[in-house]
Design a protein around this nucleic acid. Structure first.
Length: 571
DNA sequence: GCCGTTTTCGGCCCGACTGTTTTCAGTCG
């Protein structure tokens, strides 16, 4: 874990503990600082050494001191004290739905409950219902929350959840009482993982929309339902929230339910400063409660003196400040992408023939695809040696002769070996159109070694891009340690690109690192890494990462026409 | 705990739903 991630982790924990103590303002302060440091480009240690910790927004005297202590000693006495001041299982209990700070303290003082197991025992023996403010129903809810906690997957991959979202949207649009359907939440911000779904409908008859919603196929549980909102569980463990608002408030509701929470708090604070009140029904003037915006998101941002902020940017990473100055990036659009720069075929471990790829890609409206099968040393993936690669190149050339307005590029995903060299010679690399260089093994050789391997690959004159540059697998494997600043520097120097690998469980580079690459003037290539036909559809996921990383059309190589792309890679 | 184009002290976003209460606290998003 990088120093930034470690510091962020500590600050997050302090923030969470303050929340349990019911001290919401310090809690927020720590959580904001944690988030800032997590998405900080610079190494926190070097910021500290320059004496500039308090330059980071949200970091004041106390938090700076905590960071300093941690960097110097590896510990944090403030965190220790907080931990000791709370029941030991408080954090665990906090994870239960419906259990908050007050309940945790009550459970501790009156029932000596300090863990989920103990809580379960207390609830089963009927002790919880005797607490003041509790009853049989809340006791039953506690048991349900425990069951959910044990059974639920915590977050879903964006790529898995989007199709489900489309289905629900379609279902809700067939409701007579519904005038408009959209969705918000982290899915609309295209965050790499999504905890639950937020469906928004415009309707004059909220109750009817809610009734329709809870009658959706595959609903296994209705957690709450009112006249304007409802929460259900679909299938075994997907939580879906519905909100119904009148049409004239649709924009305000969409803005509000899209989040992020931090973005919204900042926006509402700004609204208050300017003499307004912002809620899910609209933007209101404080002095006479007159509604001044709300039908669209655009009017809300505009009235607050801001440029429109695209959902993917709403993470409080400086977008509101930029929108104030009118300096938001003109984000690359989903339709700007003309090709896919990393696809596998049946020649290695993919299961699609070259002609199927060409056909599938054209159906998606693409103009080119780079065929980048694995190279020799990846035996398990039937990696190509020089002889088979030459053969594949001929097959591609032959196919291309019969194609119009579309082209397969001759490429490879060449393996970066432990010494930073390749398992194919320059003799053959020089004859290819597109070379992705990736690390597939030896992830644990340390920051310096990994960085050197990547930089050595970047210095090969035939390399076009670095594939999945950090090697992480979302919710499964941490990124390998690598000094991305150095890598970006070398890449900028050698005019080598960095890939956004668009597989749902990779999305590597991630959003924050994309922004770092862009700030180093490094171009980005997007590749689906598809091994099956359906996976070509993941290309927009790659674009979403680029957008979340503030990238513009000019930053993304896939937006080039094929001729321009050739000029770019023949450096 | 942080922050300042009202403020260096006193604020810090705002509303819906539930389960327990007889008017509201707790939780969530």
């Amino acid at each position: 874990m990088s120093a930034n991630a470690e510091v962020a982790r500590i600050l997050y924990e302090i923030g969470e503990l303050y929340a349990i103590k019911g001290e919401s303002f310090p809690s927020r302060a720590y959580l904001i600082a944690a988030q800032r440091i997590e998405s900080l480009q610079d190494d926190i240690r070097s910021v500290y050494e320059k004496g500039e910790l308090q330059v980071i927004p949200g970091v004041g005297k106390s938090i700076a001191a905590a960071i300093e202590e941690f960097l110097e000693s590896g510990g944090c006495s403030h965190l220790q004290k907080l931990r000791e001041s709370l029941p030991s299982g408080a954090q665990e209990l906090m994870a239960l739905e419906g259990i908050g700070p007050k309940t945790i303290m009550k459970l501790f003082y009156e029932l000596k409950v300090t863990s989920i197991d103990q809580l379960e025992k207390a609830a089963r023996s009927g002790k919880v219902r005797k607490l003041k403010g509790f009853g049989p129903i809340s006791e039953k809810n506690v048991l349900q929350a425990i069951e959910d906690y044990r059974g639920f997957q915590k977050r879903f991959l964006l790529g898995q959840i989007l199709p489900v979202l489309r289905e629900i949207e379609e279902y809700m649009s067939s409701c007579g009482a519904v005038l408009r359907v959209d969705f918000g939440g982290s899915a609309r911000r295209m965050k790499e993982t999504v905890g639950d779904l937020d469906i928004l409908v415009a309707s004059e008859k909220g109750e009817e929309a809610v009734e329709y919603f809870i009658s959706m196929p595959r609903v296994t549980r209705v957690i709450s339902k009112g006249s304007t909102r409802s929460t259900i569980i679909v299938g075994s463990n997907l939580q879906v929230d519905l909100r119904a608002v009148p049409p004239e408030s649709f924009g305000a509701a969409l803005q509000y339910f899209t989040g992020s929470k931090e973005h919204n708090i900042k926006l509402r604070t700004l609204a208050v400063k300017l003499g307004y009140k912002l809620n899910e029904y609209g933007l209101f003037r404080r002095k006479d409660d007159k509604k001044v915006a709300g039908e669209t998101e655009e009017t809300i941002y505009q009235t607050l003196g801001l440029e429109y902020v695209e959902p993917e940017l709403r993470e409080d990473r400086g977008e509101i400040e930029a929108a104030m100055k009118g300096s938001l990036p003109n984000l690359v659009k989903y339709g700007d992408v003309r090709g896919d720069l990393h696809v596998h075929s049946s020649w290695s471990d993919g299961n699609i023939e070259l002609d199927e790829i060409a056909e599938g890609a054209q159906q998606l409206g693409l103009e080119y695809i780079a065929i980048c099968d694995h190279s020799r040393s990846l035996g398990i993936a039937r990696g190509l040696d020089e002889k088979r690669l030459r053969k594949q190149m001929k097959a591609i050339e032959k196919l291309n002769r019969n194609l119009e307005g579309f082209m397969l590029l001759k490429g490879i995903e060449v393996n970066i070996m432990a010494d930073g060299g390749f398992d194919l010679s320059n003799d053959i690399l020089k004859d290819l159109d597109f070379v992705v260089a990736s690390i597939h093994s030896g992830f644990k050789s340390g920051m310096k070694k990994m960085t050197d391997r990547l930089i050595s690959a970047i210095h090969n004159e035939y390399v076009s891009t670095i594939g999945h540059p950090t090697g992480r697998l979302i919710q499964r494997r941490q990124p390998y340690p690598v000094d991305l600043k150095k890598v970006f520097g070398a890449a900028a120097d050698q005019r080598v690109m960095m890939e956004i690998n668009a597989l749902p469980n990779r999305l590597d580079l991630n959003d924050v690192n994309c922004k770092g690459a862009m700030e180093h003037d490094v171009s980005i290539s997007i590749g689906t890494d598809a091994h099956a036909l359906g996976q070509l559809r993941y290309l927009p996921l790659g674009v979403s990462v680029a957008r979340r990383g503030w990238l513009q059309t000019k930053d993304v190589a896939n937006t080039l026409r094929i001729r321009e792309l050739f000029r770019k890679v023949s450096r």
